[in-house]
């Protein structure tokens, strides 16, 4: 499976995770790697925007509520910069208003924490197909 994993990694785009919660930043990249994606995680939107991964990122898993730049702020900023990266929002707050707003702004998926691995994989497939 390792060879297969590498192979997928080689083909599949980079999935970036932006979340201020450390446990997410620790657990989610492991799962993504299990799925075969290359991944990098950032604790804030600003950090992501300032990194060299911005260009390689094929999909963004983005927390809504963060101190400083929120998930929505980052989404708008990317649009302004012409970076049309598919975004999967994740949120610990089960807020339909946020969810609707996210879809209106072009989000691929909106997952309430805690979400299952299959829900995430499905969202990733949608996101990457869109791309």
């Amino acid at each position: 499976m390792n060879s297969g994993q590498e192979k997928i990694a080689g083909d599949l785009p980079l999935v970036a995770v932006v979340d201020d919660d450390e446990s997410v930043r620790e657990s989610l990249p492991d799962l993504l790697r299990e799925f075969g994606f290359a991944t990098r995680s950032f604790s804030s939107g600003e950090e992501f925007l300032g990194s060299d991964s911005l260009v390689q990122t094929g999909c963004l898993i983005l927390d809504v509520a963060m101190p400083g730049m929120t998930g929505f702020d980052l989404q708008r900023e990317l649009k302004l910069r012409g970076r049309n990266i598919p975004i999967i929002f994740i949120s610990a707050q089960k807020d339909e208003v946020f969810r609707r707003r996210a879809f209106q702004q072009g989000a691929v998926e909106f997952l309430f924490k805690p979400f299952s691995d299959t829900a995430l994989l499905q969202a990733l497939n949608t996101a990457l197909r869109v791309r």
Binding site: S23, L31, K113, P114, D117
Partner: peptide, 24 residues
């Protein structure tokens, strides 16, 4: 919401970790 947020964050980690663990 605040309680949920506070609880969901670690729960989210638990679920993700458990999923990863199972897959491994």
């Amino acid at each position: 919401a605040s309680i949920a947020h506070e609880v969901n964050q670690p729960l989210s980690g638990i679920v993700t970790n458990a999923s990863t663990c199972l897959r491994m």
